[in-house]
Amino acid sequence: MTTVSPALLCALPKAELHIHIEGSLEPELIFALAQRNGVALPYDSVEALRAAYAFTDLQSFLDIYYAGASVLLKEQDFFDMAMAYFERAAQDNVVHAELFFDPQTHTERGVPIGVVIEGLTRARREAQARWGISSALILCFLRHLSQASAFETLEAALPWRDHFIGVGLDSSELGHPPEKFAEVFARCRELGLHVVAHAGEEGPPAYIWSALEVLKVERIDHGVRAIEDAALMQRLAAERVPLTVCPLSNVKLCVYPHMSQHQLPALLAAGLACTINSDDPAYFGGTMNANWLATFEALPQLGLAEARKLALNSFEASFVDEATKAGWRRKLEEVLAIGVEVVNGTKPG
């Protein structure tokens, strides 16, 4: 096995396919937006807010996540939040990002869905111009709410249909199986939208089966508990169904007690199309490169071959055209060639 240096991991071009844009909202920006919008927060300082990021499970995280989102009221707020993410992503050599956004989190507070989408879209265009990062939006339904609410959200979003490429399913997993949203996902498929869903993080492998068979998703977000079901593992590998794995999130939310116990190496060895992503980076301890570095540091069985595979998987799993993917693959091979030469001492400088 060829080891991979931290510098090379950071330099690799990569696509991020599991990023909740509201979960990228850092405490400093939360306080700045709260002040700008006159929103009172239940914390008296940035430090106090950050200290509250001691989660015991998914629900304890979601409680503070929704409190943080309360400062997002105007189009400029969504633009500023997304631009802060894109700036960090550019530093991490993210070439493409497919952003999850949760309109129900905002419409329930009286924020029009157009305000959300227009602010995020303006940031996407600016990021493309400034850093060359391509991106797309995926509208997520909150699974703790009803399917009727999801239908209402979909209909409200349709005037901006050309601004988002797909739909997802997130929020509290336990007690809210994918089949709860069978009809609205069928409608989304009829509209030509891509469909993805969170499954198999806190929920059991059965939720992954349901996401595949009932919702007919193209990607599984998280999916790490597939390791508990051999038949499911075989299907995911045979059909090349991508898993958008979020290592630091899995540890922060106690899916694994420690990164050294993460099952990513076993999933990769079984032929699954895993990718590395940051999930909610402001809350879970790091952006893309932080996730890559923490994963490879704690799991020494991962080497250069796995790093290359993970990056290639991220391109393969993205919802972009083949010509664009081919360009990213060429860029990856160039970076890998230079990086290996440097490590081996065969490249000057």
Rank of each mutant, 00 (worst) to 15 (best):
Gln59Met: 15
Met233Pro: 01
Ala226His: 05
Ala67Met: 07
Gly303Phe: 08
Met83Thr: 06
Phe181Arg: 08
Glu183Pro: 00
Arg88Phe: 04
Glu179Asp: 07
Trp131Phe: 14
Glu87Trp: 08
Leu253Phe: 10
Met83Ile: 11
Leu58Glu: 04
Gly110Asp: 11
Phe164Trp: 00
Asp102Ile: 03
Ser60Gly: 07
Ser318Leu: 08
Thr324Val: 06
Pro13His: 10
Val342His: 09
Ser149Ile: 03
Asn313Thr: 01
Phe86Gln: 03
Gly23Ser: 07
Leu154Pro: 00
Lys180Asn: 15
Leu145Pro: 00
Ala231Tyr: 02
Asp44Glu: 10
Met1Asn: 10
Glu87Met: 13
Thr105His: 06
Met81Glu: 06
Ala199Leu: 14
Val340His: 04
Val214Ala: 10
Asn37Thr: 07
Val39Ser: 09
Leu174Trp: 04
Ser24Glu: 05
Met81Ala: 12
Ala238Gly: 09
Tyr85Asp: 13
Ala311Glu: 02
Val340Tyr: 06
Leu268Thr: 00
Leu310Glu: 06
Gln128Phe: 13
Val46Gln: 05
Gln261Thr: 11
Ser171Thr: 10
Glu152Trp: 01
Arg219Phe: 09
Leu49Asp: 03
Val342Trp: 08
Ala82Thr: 14
Arg240His: 15
Leu17Pro: 02
Thr295Phe: 06
Gly339Ser: 09
Arg143Phe: 10
Tyr207Gln: 04
Lys325Phe: 14
Arg36Cys: 08
Arg109Ser: 02
Glu152Phe: 11
Ala337Glu: 14
Leu253Pro: 02
Leu332Ile: 05
